[in-house]
Simulated assay, not measured.
Amino acid sequence: MLTESAPLLHYQFIEQTIQPGQSVSLKCAAVGNPVPTLTWLLNGLPVQRSDRVLVGEQPGARGRVVGHVNITSSRVQDGGAYRCIASSSAGKVGHTANLNIYGEPTARHTASLTAVAGEALELYCPVAGYPLQSFLWTKDGVTLTGTEDNIRLGPGGTLTLKSARKPADSGLYSCSASVRQERSASAAVQVDVLTAPRIALVSTSDGGVEAGDRVTLTCTVSKGDSPLTIMWYRDGIPLPSHGSRTDDITIVSLNAYNSVLGVERVGPRHGGRYSCRASNAAGTDVLAYSLVVNGTCQLLQMSGHGGGGGGGGTKVKDIDSFSSVLTLGPLTLDHVGRYSCRASNSAATVEAGADLTVNGKVVLMLHDRRDRQD
Rank of each mutant, 00 (worst) to 15 (best):
C219L: 08
D192Q: 07
K315I: 05
V193T: 00
P46S: 03
A81K: 10
Y339E: 12
G32Q: 06
G67F: 05
Q16Y: 14
S275I: 02
A352V: 09
Y274R: 10
K92L: 07
L159K: 00
V221N: 01
V142A: 05
H10Q: 14
C341R: 02
R52C: 06
V266I: 12
V66G: 03
Y233Q: 05
S226Y: 05
R152M: 03
V93T: 06
L228C: 02
T220L: 10
V53M: 08
L42N: 01
A128E: 13
D225V: 00
N255T: 13
V66L: 15
D247R: 03
A187R: 01
P36T: 15
V260C: 04
R183I: 14
R165K: 09
S5D: 06
A128L: 12
Q22Y: 12
I85H: 01
D140E: 05
G308P: 02
L41E: 03
A352D: 08
S324I: 11
L144A: 03
I101E: 00
A200T: 14
V215S: 02
S279V: 11
A128K: 07
R152P: 01
G154P: 03
A200M: 13
V65H: 01
T138L: 04
L41I: 08
R269V: 12
G312L: 15
G308C: 13
E351H: 11
S259W: 03
L123I: 02
K317A: 15
P34K: 08
L113V: 00
R265N: 07
D371F: 11
Y173C: 02
R214A: 15
G304M: 07
V350N: 14
D368C: 13
V142M: 04
S290C: 05
T37F: 05
G236E: 11
R183Q: 09
W137C: 05
V316H: 07
